[in-house]
């Protein structure tokens, strides 16, 4: 018999068990971003996240990876490494994304203000939404330059585990 209560309980149990840490690497390119996203989401399967949570994870990661492909690694530097690691803690998924490309301007991540859309149609922004989305959806976003590497740390408050 269909029992939604038991099903959702099973889902919670899945999120109660920590996912083992994992890491994946791709070579920088726009298509590699898709590959990385697909691989990353597949690794989250045991958590049985709902579609809303998966879309949050995918969007934040996509924006962070697109920034690396577009800015850290310019066209003259194709196929450079991007590494993504994930640790599941009580307060969600802690993700570190690192690359060996150009550092962030001013050594920090952009403020990520919401774009002003109360403007004439012809002045409507076509870009600059990426960091806003990352900062809106992710927590504890921090960036540092370690030697020749960029490291972006962030937390996604999904699969949060109850204190037992």
């Amino acid at each position: 018999m269909h029992n939604p209560t038991a099903q959702s309980h099973a889902g919670n149990d899945a999120q109660q068990r920590p996912l083992p840490p994992f890491q994946l690497s791709v070579q920088s390119s726009e298509m590699a971003v898709r590959e990385a996203l697909g691989g990353f989401i597949a690794c989250l399967n045991p958590l049985q996240l709902d579609l809303e949570e998966i879309s949050t994870v995918e969007l934040v990661l996509a924006e962070a990876l697109n920034n690396i492909v577009e800015h850290a690694y310019p066209v003259a530097m194709p196929d450079q490494p991007i590494r993504i690691s994930c640790v599941h803690r009580r307060d969600g998924l802690w993700i570190t994304i690192s690359d060996k490309g150009h550092p962030m301007p001013d050594g920090q991540v952009p403020i990520g203000m919401a774009q002003d859309i109360d403007v004439d149609i012809m002045d409507m922004p076509e870009g600059g939404f990426g960091w806003f989305l990352i900062k809106d959806l992710a927590k504890d976003v921090s960036y540092c330059r370690k030697g020749q590497e960029n490291c972006l740390d962030l937390r996604l408050a999904v699969a949060v585990r109850r204190a037992i």
């Binding site: 995918e58 969007l59 996509a62 924006e63 697109n66 149609i121 076509e126 870009g127 939404f129």
Partner: peptide
């Protein structure tokens, strides 16, 4: 799935 680049492309079309 759409990211901010896709959103920008729709705005550009408009």
């Amino acid at each position: 799935f759409i990211d901010s680049s896709g959103l920008g492309a729709i705005v550009a079309t408009m």
